[in-house]
Amino acid sequence: MRQAHELLNGKWIGNQYGGVTAPEALMLPDPATRFARTAARLDALSTGHPMARWLDFMARVARAQHAVASMMRLSGSLVRIEVEDGVELTPPIAANSYRRDPIWREGLALLLDGLDIGAAPTSVRMTIAALRDSSIDGQEALADDFLHGSMEPGDLGAAVFVAAALQVYFTHLAASLPAASLSLLPQRGLCPCCGCTPVCGVIAETGKVRGARYLHCSLCGTAWNHVRAVCITCSHSRWLALRAIEGLGGAARIETCDDCGTYAKMLYQAEDAGVDPVADDLATLGLDVLACQEGWSRHAPNPFLWSGQLSRPG
């Protein structure tokens, strides 16, 4: 039988400092890969999909975004980050108040000119032509309306392309920020860079902490950590549930909250390592339809599904 004093000659194993590894607070987007990855994922998901033609068109939009992102060069102006007691007071590139550089309109023109519309219907071709010929003031007004969630019904077609151009612009802005100086907002469900809501969440299978949840911004593409088992809209957890369509596999689930009546879509890398927030959200529209039929409202829209309020509901 070994004696207790013999154990004192052993060595500790594991982390000598103890504790639990914390996930990265946020990850800034990479303009060189964001849109190319979405396009490739849409190509893969469109095969045999009931909405294959639409997904194919959105893949074309993403490829046009990638081309614009590869050419865009922002000016060297610095973005001021206001922090108090280690907490960001406002998003440094707040979408609804940041003074946009005219280069975003150059990006819009390049996107419209470079977009391969394929067999798109006449209405799409007319929308593109009208947007291409619109005035500077008209394009800026569309951007303001989109970012403030006040689009007129007749402008929703143009909003798809305005949103695409703004995504490229704000992705470049976010990528230029000093990550070490950024912190999460008090409203954890909002992007720490631009203040917009996430398109969906991704449950990571790689990185510092497996199983960590990252919300992905619908505008600038920043990903930030958000604790699981808490509603991203109201921060309650009492009536939170994770749901999927019976008999249908896949990486997507919806997280419903009966406290506030909203739902958010979650993607699991453990089920499919290739998930992309924008592409997989578009390809799982059936989950949105069923959730709405059951009475839940989506936490925040995908700009390509519905061009409405980008900021927090309510």
Rank of each mutant, 00 (worst) to 15 (best):
A40H: 08
E88M: 15
W104Y: 00
E294Y: 05
G149Y: 03
A175Y: 03
T127C: 10
M72P: 05
F161E: 09
G157P: 09
E82R: 07
D133C: 04
P29T: 11
C234W: 01
E88Y: 00
G48S: 04
L177S: 01
G114W: 10
G286S: 11
T206I: 12
V124S: 03
Q309F: 03
A39I: 01
L115E: 07
A223H: 01
G48I: 04
L26I: 12
T197H: 02
V79I: 05
N96H: 11
L111V: 12
L287P: 08
A143Y: 10
P277G: 06
A36F: 01
D85S: 12
L147E: 09
C217M: 07
A300G: 15
P186R: 14
K208N: 11
C292N: 10
F57D: 01
A25T: 13
G14Y: 14
S307A: 15
P153R: 11
A159F: 08
E140G: 04
S134E: 15
L285P: 00
D258F: 00
N96K: 11
T222S: 08
L142M: 10
A59D: 03
L7K: 11
C191S: 07
G314C: 05
G149N: 01
V87P: 02
W224F: 03
R34T: 09
F161I: 08
P102A: 06
V230A: 12
E140V: 10
N15G: 13
I13D: 05
S150D: 09
C260M: 06
T90Q: 13
A32S: 15
F57G: 04
D43A: 11
V230S: 08
I254Q: 02
C194N: 03
Q65S: 02
